[in-house]
Nucleic acid binder design. Structure first.
Lengths: 221, 221
DNA sequence: TGTAATGTTTACCAACCGGTTAAATTATCA
DNA sequence: TGATAATTTAACCGGTTGGTAAACATTACA
């Protein structure tokens, strides 16, 4: 059997609830900044303020912590895409999806980096999630976007690459935060950067996906 | 003194040239897929086909290997941005910048991941490069873009966030390759995905940056 | 309050990891 | 070819890492 001792108790206690919460919070912090292999149980224990063997009383292995963390975070991570509504106005749906993703990059950068680390290193521990639930959800929303494009409500484009572009541009502000701040410089690196980013991305995507080219040189409507 | 023994020889030999090349190639492979802390000297030695002490004859520490690798790769990595020409046609400059970055993501994904890993984990070893040469180059090109925008050649937008968006969308195809392939599915995950991406990104940026809004509701010129 | 269930700590281990030493081997060239 | 410089290897070292065993402390509840 591969259960930690805490899972073998007869009832699930208040302490278990609290400590597991505490551990996953610490694990998020550590895994997000160091990746799986770069993180140590000792680090996580330190952040959680408990001893290593005590951690291992609740999660039998480092991998088990990581797995539990991914499981807990993945669902909420995909929520914004789920809210993407086929019945809504295409432009405002896309716009609010971008806004929501950008808010998540600002408010939950560790979650973003957790996945980024994992995917970047070949996704050895989340491959199933990518090819299963994630792909299924994207497939579904891609269909919606394609419908909009065919109805002439937005420009004809590959819906998958549109979604990739939104992911990339928004998560960039969480995953590459250090670089963004370094390039913007001290004076511009305040929280205002997220509003600037939102403004720019809105321009880019709304304008970029608008039907029929701009005044300059597109084929006449 | 912190020199590896190979650097203390009287002449620089053919073998040194070859072996250092071999080591850096192996180090790129390993660092790109595991990050600095996740990589071991043994792994690099394995890929390079030589023993660990032999590696350490050419590079005194793991960090020295990483430093040498970054140094060698950073310059060529920034080349596309350097070619960005103030005198050229704005739209075609931006378009060819995107194309070139996308080609690099396709042809040199390991280089992209090397930096992504580093930046993602707080850039402890390349902070200076980010705040120095990188920022300087971006500042310079941002000015060019701003000039274009003021001259009405492209939409008024924040040039820094434009550059971030181009970086994010193009490097996404190298850094998040596993995810891209998983979502596209087996049938669409061939090399054609880069052409599809190029087509989409061209639409997005060229359309998105075109002066004056599209037919739908922009302020009259 | 007593006791059984739950939680925590101390001490430990084997494998791994970055790096060193010194001896052995190979290449270079007068 | 022989001597010298350059390269490679085997053996090793101290610290770290993931994980375990068992004693000890605490909590919950009858």
């Amino acid at each position: 059997m591969a259960l930690p001792r805490a899972a073998k108790t007869q009832r699930r206690t208040r302490i278990q609830e609290e400590k597991e919460e505490l551990i996953l919070e610490a694990a998020l912090e550590v895994f997000a900044t160091n990746g799986f292999r770069g993180s140590t149980i000792d680090q996580i224990a330190d952040v959680a303020g408990m001893s290593k063997p005590n951690l291992l009383y609740y999660f039998r292995t480092k991998e088990a912590m990581h797995r539990a963390l991914i499981e807990r975070v993945l669902d909420s991570w995909l929520d914004p895409l789920r809210e993407f509504d086929a019945e809504g106005n295409p432009v405002s749906e896309i716009r609010s999806y971008i806004r929501r993703k950008l808010e998540m990059a600002r408010d939950f950068p560790r979650e973003s980096r957790l996945f980024a680390n994992e995917v970047l290193q070949g996704a050895p521990r989340i491959e199933d999630a990518l090819m299963g639930p994630l792909k299924a959800l994207v497939d579904e929303k891609a269909k919606v976007i394609r419908t909009w494009a065919k109805a002439g409500k937005i420009a004809k484009c590959d819906p998958y690459h549109l979604i990739f572009a939104i992911w990339a541009t928004t998560q960039h502000y969480a995953d590459f935060d250090v670089q963004v701040r370094a390039v913007l410089g001290k004076d511009r690196a305040g929280e205002g950067r997220f509003e600037d980013a939102a403004r720019f991305l809105e321009l880019l995507f709304v304008n970029g996906l608008a039907v029929s080219g701009p005044a300059t040189g597109g084929p006449a409507a």
